[in-house]
């Protein structure tokens, strides 16, 4: 009995580890980066967006997995998109209700979680072939892996672009703001450098 438990624990740990590090959606697979670029100019926006993505990724994987025996193969993509879209509507309404200002600045990017390839990818690659609980963990781990990289990028963009963190002044008045960091090109540079940094930490044979 204890061996089965130990194996289960191992599988769970490896699922989580895979989502966060080994197959990190952003710097390993370079997926779903539209929102990674668009919402990372302020840490607060990024937190809200990450929470939304985490919830959607975990819950849609769970639901897709629950329904996997009743979904015909031919229409599975459409079914997955509709499941994801329903959760995104929940997230959108929740953000509108509790954080109206952030909802206004995020604009269409909450809705665009639907077409975020990370969620589709996890549903298609893992949830459709696995039981609900591992699927939930897998989706959640992908969500965490995505959020970690996003928060890392947002941290530097807000710090260097505005001299603030979560709206609090951190760098002194003498600090010259790097306005470029909060403009679109800064997002591309920062993500490029992040991908470079994380990939150079990996052993060469696994860089592809």
């Amino acid at each position: 009995m204890s061996t089965i438990k130990a194996i289960r624990k191992n599988v769970t740990l490896s699922t989580i580890r895979r989502g966060i590090w080994d197959e990190n959606p952003v710097f390993r697979q370079v997926l779903g980066i539209c929102s990674a670029l668009a919402v990372t100019n302020l840490l607060a926006n990024t937190l809200v967006m990450s929470a939304g993505l985490f919830f959607t990724a975990a819950m849609s994987s769970f639901t897709v997995s629950l329904l996997r025996k009743y979904t015909p193969r031919d229409v599975r993509i459409m079914a997955q998109v509709l499941i994801i879209a329903s959760y995104v509507i929940c997230v959108d309404l929740a953000i509108k209700a509790y954080y109206p200002e952030i909802s206004a600045t995020l604009g269409p990017y909450v809705g665009l979680i639907i077409t975020n390839c990370i969620i589709m990818g996890r549903c298609e690659a893992f949830a459709y072939h696995n039981p609900p609980i591992p699927a939930l963990l897998d989706g959640a781990a992908a969500g965490v892996g995505y959020s970690v990289v996003l928060l890392f990028i947002a941290f530097w963009r807000e710090l260097l672009g505005f001299g603030t963190l979560l709206g609090h002044q951190v760098l002194g008045d003498g600090f010259a703001r790097w306005t470029i960091m909060v403009m679109p090109p800064g997002a591309f540079f920062m993500l490029g450098l992040t991908v470079w940094l994380f990939r150079s930490l990996l052993p060469p044979e696994r860089r592809d």
Partner: peptide, 21 residues
């Protein structure tokens, strides 16, 4: 080698975005 592929592509895109500004 670690910058190849997506890394350098993103940086090029950043320079393109600068030009479009």
């Amino acid at each position: 080698p670690a910058l190849e592929g997506p890394g350098i592509t993103l940086i090029i895109t950043g320079i393109m975005a600068l030009a479009f500004i």
